[in-house]
Each structure stands twice: as C-alpha cells, then as structure tokens.
Design a protein around this nucleic acid. Structure first.
Length: 275
DNA sequence: CCGCTGTCCTGCCAGC
DNA sequence: TGCTGGCAGGACAGCG
C-alpha cells in the first residue's frame, strides 16, 4: 500500500529490525522483480550492517557498512514481514507464495520481502553514485519538508497544460504523492482535479492562492495518514478515494462523490465543493 | 520537451 | 459454482 505515508510507516517498522544488526544470510528466491536483481545481490548484502534508514518520496534508502546503499521501492504490492528472533519455529519456516527475498539477521530475526505483482525495486548503489542514481535524483521536492510550499508547487507546475491531478502523480513535481493522496489533497483544498496544473502559477511563475492552499493540503493529508498508520488503523480512512456515490463529507456540502478517469487512473472528487 | 497510451504482473471482485 | 473482464495504491518506454 505504498504511497508516501505507507512507505514512511514501513521505514519505521524496518528501522529496529535492521539498523545496527548484521545481515547474516540472504536468500534470493528468484532472479528479480520487474528487472533482474543487481549482480551478486546476495553476496553484496551478506555480512553488511545497515547503519541508517532514510526515505525520499516513495523510496527507502538503507545505508550499509559496505559503503553501498540498498534502495527499495515497493511498487504496487511490495511489503515487508518481520519475524522476530523469539518467534516460534513454525513462523520462521513459513513461506508465502510471493516471498522473493529473505534476510536472516545476526540476531535471528527474518526480514522478508513479499511482492505479488513484482513491480517493486530492490537495488544496490555505491555510496558515491547515489546523487546520480536517476530514479532518486529526478525526484521533486519532499512534501513534508519545510522548504515545500506554494511557491515550490507553483514553480513545478508552471506551464503545464495537464490536469492538476495528473501533475500531482508526476514524481518530479512532488515526491511521494500517489493516486489516493492526490484525490484526497485536492478535495481538502477544494480544487477540481480537472484544473490545469499551470493555473497554480501566474504567467510569470508566481504562486497563486490555490498553490498555497494545495501545498498545505498535501502536507495535511500525508501527515495525518502517517499518524493514523502509526496507531495501526485498518479501516479505510479516505474521504473521497473509492467513495463514488457517497455524500461529500464536507460540512454542509450537498455534493456526491464522482469517479472519473484521468491519464488512465481513477480520480475521485466532489464536483460541488471542488472548483 | 510535452502529454498520452500501453505495458509490466498477479489478485480480487462483480456480473453473467 | 465457475468463468470472464475490468480494475488495482507505480513507473517507464514509446509514440505523435
């Protein structure tokens, strides 16, 4: 379930299992995911100790004692399962259908990567090469950083003729927003997903009011989602996503949530309060 | 360069 | 019950 909030939650869950614990053994159970795993993948991980876990957009970066970084992207269906050192043997031996990589940590824990659709990425990058690693180096601003604001959003959207919803999915515009939180943020900001992205800026590129509002809404929906996942919510908390036909949740709004298709993806919005 | 479509892969669900 | 088609939270190649 991997947009920025879910990826951040995964990072926090992996942190105590990986950081400072040597990787004792690596079981790579297929040749790759969408692409082959990097050369000598298991050998390069074995014996390494993760020193830090950071997130950039939807990527997790695991810095290793070997001066390489394990770059992780969960794609559509990637997930980690952690089997703690004190788990019973039957849990340790359990193998699920799409368990592709199993890390055995020196403390006995297992860190298992499972990915039915195999759209994920597990890659190794030399420390010096990270800045030039294309998938990361082309990412736009980090939405929860203080530096991300209406001006940054307007600058990234200036001149774009594509609808704002489609622009928000472009990781070069803002990193980490996906199909759910694009709809949620636009609803929070009361902005129609059909509006032209370029309309967030004046012809000279200065931010319009809508850019400030939308930047704030992006921060709000992402931060709230991270907080909810930390408390292990499981019910769907979305206000418009997958709620076609439901009453708009905005107070005193009489609208009904609609689903439309933009650039081949579903968009949910309220045609009454989003303009 | 820009924006749109198709594609990678499996699972699930609605409808027949 | 079983089959089929459509859709799914991502990203990129290839096209006009």
């Amino acid at each position: 379930m991997p947009e920025l909030p879910e990826v951040e939650t995964v990072r926090r869950e992996l942190l105590p299992a990986l950081a400072g614990v040597r990787i004792a053994h690596v079981d790579v159970r297929r040749a790759g995911l969408r692409r082959p795993f990097p050369r000598h993948f298991a050998d390069r991980l074995t014996g390494a100790t993760p020193t830090a876990l950071t997130r950039r957009g939807k990527f997790i970066q695991v810095a290793l004692s070997t001066d390489e970084t394990l770059v992780i992207h969960l794609g559509m269906s990637g997930a980690f399962r952690i089997v703690t050192p004190d788990a019973p043997d039957e849990d340790r031996e359990l193998r699920y259908t799409h368990d592709h990589v199993v890390l055995t940590m020196a403390d006995g824990a297992l860190v298992v990567y499972n990915d039915p659709r195999r759209f994920g990425v597990l890659d190794l990058v030399k420390a010096g090469g990270l800045a030039r690693y294309a998938p990361l180096s082309t990412l736009g601003p980090e939405p929860l950083d203080a530096g991300f604001d209406g001006a940054a959003l307007a600058a990234a959207c200036a001149g774009k003729r594509t609808p704002i919803k489609v622009a928000l999915l472009d990781q070069r515009v803002v990193a980490g927003v996906g199909n759910i939180y694009a709809s949620e943020a636009l609803h929070h900001a009361r902005i129609s997903p059909r509006r032209r992205a370029g309309a967030l800026a004046t012809p000279r590129g200065a931010p319009r009011e809508a850019a400030h509002v939308l930047a704030g809404s992006i921060k709000h929906v992402l931060a709230l989602a991270i907080a909810r996942h930390e408390r292990a919510y499981r019910r769907s908390p979305f206000l418009v996503y997958e709620r076609e036909g439901a009453a708009c949740p905005r107070r005193r709004c009489e609208g009904v949530i609609r689903r439309i298709t933009q650039a081949g993806r579903s968009t949910y919005y309220c045609p009454v309060c989003q303009r």
